[in-house]
Amino acid sequence: MDYLVRNPDTVLRLTGEHLYMAVVALLIALLIALPLSMLLLRSKPLATFVLGILGVLYTIPSIALLILLLPFFGLNRNSVIAALVIYAQIILVRNMVAGLQGVPTAMLDAAKGMGMTAWQRWWQVQFPLALPVILAGVRLATVVAIGIATIGAKFGAGGLGTLLFDGIAQNRYDKIVVGSVVVALLALILNRLLLAMEHYFEPASRIKRAVRPVRSVAAAEAPTAV
C-alpha cells in the first residue's frame, strides 16, 4: 500500500480512466439494450436467435474480442469500450426481457382496459414493475465491465490495469496489490450502490417505507350487513 501513499495522483487518474470506460460503455449498452429488448418481446423466435448470438459473443475471451475490434476502433479506449458494450449486452438484454415479460398480462390488460395509452402503460406499469430485474442486470453488467476494463491497459486505454501489467513487467508486487485492491473495491462499491437502488424499487420495500404499519385485516373483512 506504500505505492498508493506515495502516488495518490496516479492511482486516482487511473481509477478515473477506468470508471470512464466502464460508465460510458454501460450507458451506450443501455441505450442499445432497451429498444432491442422491447423489439425482442414482440417475437419469441427473434428473441431466442438474438439472445443466442449475444450469448456466443459473451464467451469470446476478452483479448481475442479486443483484437477483433482493433481494426474498427483503433488502438485506444474506444476498442475497449466497444468490447464492454458487447459483453454488457447479453446481461442487460436478458434481464430486461425477463423483467418486462414478468409483468402479468392480466395487469397490462387492466391498464389498457382503463384507457392508458401504450406510452402510459409502459411508463406507469410495465417499466416500474420490471425495474428491479433490469437494475439487477445493470449491476451485474457493471461488475463485469469494471473487471474486463482492466485489460484496457494492454490496448492503450489506461485504467487500473496499467498498475497490474506494469507490476508484472517490472516485478513490482506493490503495484499489483494496489491495482487489484482498487479494482475490487470499485466493483464492490458499485455493486452495493446498485443493489441499494434495486431494493429501493422493489414493491416489498415500498411497503416497508409506507408509514402505516400493517394491522389485522380481520375487522374489515367481516361480512357487512345489508
Binding site: M107, A110, A111, G113, P128, L129
Partner: peptide, 17 residues
C-alpha cells in the same frame, strides 16, 4: 371509450407498485 367504462378483473388487476 375505455375511460368511461369501469373494468374489474380477477386477482392481479391492481398495480402492486
Amino acid at each position: 371509450l375505455r375511460r368511461q367504462i369501469g373494468y374489474v378483473i380477477q386477482q392481479t388487476g391492481l398495480f402492486p407498485h
